[in-house]
Design a binder for these strands. Structure first.
Lengths: 115, 115
DNA sequence: GAAAAATGCAACTAAATGGTTGCATATAGA
DNA sequence: TCTATATGCAACCATTTAGTTGCATTTTTC
């Protein structure tokens, strides 16, 4: 592999690692799922039924936002949160590419096991 | 959603979040990639070319191991690390299901945006 | 305009994380 | 057996993370 390609891999990793990190927490994963299923909603609604406080949820939302996965907008006295389509698509594509990469690797790995 | 289904979701999340967390770090993501491309190898070889010490890599390998993503076996004076096929397949399937879930959500989200 | 609701902000704490260094142990090979 | 190599173990440190509580601010709504 050329140095250039190696660096391309590194910067891609650099870009996507935060997404994984953001999803690597049960509370956040649940937030994403809820926004997925329930559409845009406020912190208070997201917090309802959660085992942590609103402030905790708020911090998690900030993490998700910094990873580019969610976005928010003020509406009256509440703030509505929703998934960020672009980034989510991007992450999806990356997940798929990783998935394929693994698939190939698993094929090669079988040889090692059989050997 | 029934309580049962919610709990099923929760336990699935509980099972998969560590995988995301494990991949949510550049060093670990790189380790996985190297094991993917280079096949099973020792810590020393994994550490070569890395910017962190062997011990740091060792700790990262432990994290990956606890997430079930890698496995190791002693061979003579060295320990050979390799990707765990089963878990990786499992993670792959989960990534794909999440991916689909997002896809559907993105479709629904467009309605919100247009509305 | 006053009470209730929704959020924002700040300080603080406990625990986890990511990294290091130093030293001990085990194995390969000359 | 002696030396170099590969790993394991433990202590230690700085930073980040995940959570809390308390109080201030902004909007509704009656």
């Amino acid at each position: 592999m050329s140095r250039r390609n190696r660096n391309a891999g590194a910067s891609r990793r650099q870009a996507q690692a935060p997404v994984f990190a953001a999803l690597g927490d049960q509370v956040r994963l649940r937030i994403v799922t809820r926004l997925c299923d329930g559409g845009p909603m406020s912190i208070t609604r997201l917090t309802a039924g959660s085992r942590v406080t609103r402030q905790a949820v708020s911090k998690h939302l900030l993490v998700l936002q910094q990873a580019g996965l969610v976005r928010s907008a003020r509406r009256g006295r509440e703030r509505i949160w929703q998934l960020e389509q672009r980034r989510l698509q991007e992450a999806r594509r990356y997940l798929e590419s990783i998935s394929e990469q693994w698939d190939e690797a698993l094929g090669r790995l079988r040889k090692f096991v059989e050997a």
